[in-house]
Amino acid sequence: MLQFAGFWMAMVTFLGIWWGHVGVRWLEAHSPNIWPPIVVLALSGVALNGFSLFAPNLTLAGVSSILGITLMWDALEMYRQQQRVLKKHAPANPDNPRHAAYLAAGKAITEDLLDREPQGTPDVPSAPQRVEFCRATYERREVEA
């Protein structure tokens, strides 16, 4: 007989991480104030972990705890996502008043810098990186020749 516990744990782990990436980005970009969703995520996480203590079987206990812990982590990620927007590592949403204020102050950008294919070269290499890159390119061409 097949054992499905691992499958359900894999599903909830992947979906939890997926929500932690896609959902948190969306929620942060659309929340005028990040604290209400942070509180909801954290409390949902605590509740799910509380439920897992009394769940009738291991699969349900594991699924609810994994989901609970990822939601608690997402509460922290909401704050970190805001910091990414302020570091221009994530795009700001001009329709969100909080982000609009960052944009007006020149603290954020609307461009998603990660939305592209890797190019194979650094965009803005530092001086040591440039030296190392030139040396590695030279060595590679020597080997290829």
Binding site: Q3, F4, G6, F7, W8, M9, A10, T13, F14, I17
Partner: peptide, 30 residues
């Protein structure tokens, strides 16, 4: 590797070990 872990987890008799393998598989896919 992640998919392999999940497939193997179907054939582990112990629920706990299957769960650990499934979690590892899911995280490798991510």
């Amino acid at each position: 590797l992640g998919i392999l872990f999940i497939l193997v987890s179907f054939f582990i008799g112990n629920e706990g070990w299957s769960a650990l393998l499934g979690i590892t598989g899911g995280s490798f896919i991510w």
